[in-house]
């Protein structure tokens, strides 16, 4: 299935969970926040949150800022 991750199109296995996607991208261990189609998905819900065709996923973390 096609999904968009941080604005980039990506081909992912159908029905993949958000947690699996994070692990695949190397963001499984770090502290990130996830947003699925404009809604924040809490960390605890990522393992059961499966993705669908054309979903938009944002993975965010902290950077330096004032």
């Amino acid at each position: 299935m096609k999904v968009q991750v941080n604005g980039e199109p990506m081909e992912r296995p159908a029905g993949e969970t958000l947690a699996a996607l994070l692990t695949a991208l190397g963001a499984g261990s770090g502290r990130v926040a996830t947003v699925l189609n404009d809604d924040v998905v809490p960390a605890a819900a990522r393992a059961t949150q499966s993705l669908s065709e054309n979903d938009r996923v944002e993975i965010l973390t902290f950077a330096g800022g004032g």
Binding site: N6, G7, G30, F62, G64, G65, G66
Partner: peptide, 17 residues
């Protein structure tokens, strides 16, 4: 203060948190 940024696999080591 910290800012939000999209996670970048290439810079995962720069994690501020």
């Amino acid at each position: 203060t910290v800012a939000l940024r999209r996670f970048n696999p290439a810079q995962a080591a720069d994690d501020l948190f």
